[in-house]
Simulated scan of single mutants.
Amino acid sequence: MNYPRDCWYVAATSDEVDDGFLARRILDTSVVLLRLADGSVAALEDRCAHRPYPLSAGHREGDLVVCGYHGCTYDATGRCVRIPSQETPPSGAQVRDFPVVEGGPFVWVWTGTPGGERLRPPPSTPWLDGEGWSSVGERRDVAASLMLLHEHYLDLTNVFEMHPELVPPGIESLPPLEEVEVSEVSVSYTRELPKAPLAPWEAQISGLDSVESFGRKETGAFVTPGLHKQTYTISGSAGPDLELVRTHGFTPVSSGATHVFLQISWRGASVSPDAGALLAAVFHEMANRDFAVLETVQRCLDEDTTPRRYVNVKADRAAVRARRILTSMVEEERGSQHP
């Protein structure tokens, strides 16, 4: 296992959870999500307590979940309340229920140490549903580890090789990271770009004059193992003209696969009315290339029969620190389980 369990992870977007079942593999655990009559979301382990059969393959009776194998019936806390073949369920007949928090477009779930969720809330994402902001999003399944995804997005120097059409005219390389901030559980960086005219995609979306030169500020943050945030601001002489935030909810499926919940948020005074569709198209294609490379890197790691030591460069400063935090969290959890 190369990911920490004691963390809030995105299980779904709110619009994915309705009056049916949503089955999802999260942190090597099968989970079923359902929306209850009061509008809240419940999350249960997707296995009947009687036999290893998915509860999501059964049906609902209101807020009750009925297993499709022998009819064992569970309430939203995971307690077995009915077994058709006998008068009362056996003592202790229960499936685990997982804490859930719904905020903005995300449904967060805690599958780690029971009770640990009370020590820290899910990360705040006010830009995803704040006044003046608009967002579009998608979910992707990527055959690469959580660690590789965080490292990739903490080093955007690959943009010149992988996404040259997105680079503003005249910028030949990214300046060195001006500032890398590290706390016990997070890493962030800030980078200022020199003034340059707009790239075609920037002009289309921003509604700004493509002849003028603008400054740009880029930031990236490993907020938690389950959340990565990047901002990109285009500014003229009077201040920000376009603000973009790319939010990644990273949720391990297993050690070598990850659910990615991608949201692109924007605001600006003269933004194109088609900004949502344009941004969705730009960042969907960008994600296609990113994920293809990361899946190749994962395959190479899996194929290596002997450990290799890969070198780091200056642009890896933030990524190396994030790796240290993730590794430390995993090792700490292992130590607590095996004193």
Rank of each mutant, 00 (worst) to 15 (best):
Asp141Ala: 07
Arg79His: 04
Gly103Asn: 15
Pro84Gln: 07
Pro52Trp: 06
Tyr74Asp: 00
Val81Lys: 09
Arg140Cys: 04
Ala76Gly: 02
Gly130Leu: 13
Gly92Thr: 09
Val107Leu: 05
Leu64Thr: 02
Val142His: 00
Pro52Cys: 10
Val65Lys: 01
Ser135Leu: 08
Asp97His: 13
Tyr53Arg: 05
Pro126Ile: 07
Val66Gly: 00
Arg79Leu: 09
Val142Trp: 01
Pro105His: 02
Ser85Thr: 13
Val66Ile: 07
Arg139Ser: 12
Phe106Glu: 01
Ser85Trp: 06
Pro52Val: 05
Gly58Val: 09
Gly71Glu: 07
Pro105Phe: 00
Arg82Thr: 03
Glu138Cys: 11
Gly116Tyr: 05
Gly78Asn: 10
His70Gly: 09
Asp97Arg: 14
Leu119Glu: 14
His70Arg: 09
Gly130Gln: 13
Val95Glu: 06
Tyr53Met: 15
Arg82Asp: 13
Trp127Met: 00
Leu148Cys: 04
Arg96Lys: 11
Pro99Gln: 08
Met147Pro: 00
Gly62Pro: 05
Arg60Thr: 04
Ser134Ala: 15
Ser85Glu: 11
Ala93Asn: 10
Ser134Pro: 00
Ser134Tyr: 08
Gly78Glu: 11
Leu149Asp: 08
Arg118Pro: 04
Pro90Phe: 11
Ser85Gln: 12
Thr125Gln: 13
Ser134Cys: 14
Val66Ser: 01
Gln94Ser: 09
Gly115Tyr: 00
Gly130Arg: 12
Val142Tyr: 00
Gly130Asn: 14
Tyr69Arg: 03
Asp97Glu: 06
Phe106Pro: 00
Asp63Leu: 11
Pro123Glu: 07
Arg60Gln: 09
Glu61Asn: 05
Gly58His: 12
Gly92Lys: 13
Leu119Tyr: 10
Arg140Thr: 06
Gly132His: 11
Gly116Val: 05
Thr111Asp: 00
Val109Gly: 03
Val101Met: 11
Glu138Thr: 14
Gly58Ala: 09
Thr125Ala: 14
Thr77Lys: 11
Val142Gln: 03
Asp75Gly: 02
Gly62His: 02
Pro123Gly: 02
Gly104Pro: 10
Ser91Arg: 14
Val136Phe: 12
Gln94Met: 11
Val65Asn: 02
Pro114Arg: 08
Val109Gln: 08
His59Ile: 01
Thr125Cys: 15
Thr111Arg: 02
Gly62Trp: 05
His70Trp: 07
Thr88Glu: 13
Trp133Thr: 12
Ser85Gly: 06
Asp129His: 15
Pro99Phe: 04
Ala57Cys: 12
Leu148Asn: 04
Pro105Cys: 00
Val107Glu: 02
Ser134Thr: 10
Phe106Leu: 01
Trp133Glu: 08
Cys67Arg: 01
Ile83Glu: 13
Glu138Asp: 14
Asp141Ile: 06
Arg82Gln: 14
Gly92Gln: 13
Asp75Thr: 06
Arg140Gly: 05
Pro114Leu: 10
Ser134Val: 03
Arg120Cys: 15
Ser124Phe: 04
Ser134Ile: 03
His59Ala: 10
Glu131Ala: 15
Leu64Gln: 05
Leu149Met: 15
Pro90Ile: 10
Glu117His: 08
Tyr74Gly: 03
Trp127Val: 01
Pro114Lys: 09
Pro89Asn: 08
Leu149Ile: 15
His70Asp: 10
Arg60Lys: 14
Pro52Ser: 12
Ala143Met: 06
Gly116Asp: 04
Glu138His: 13
Cys80Ser: 11
Gly116Glu: 03
Arg82Val: 01
Arg118Asn: 15
Pro84Leu: 06
Glu131Asp: 15
Ser56Glu: 05
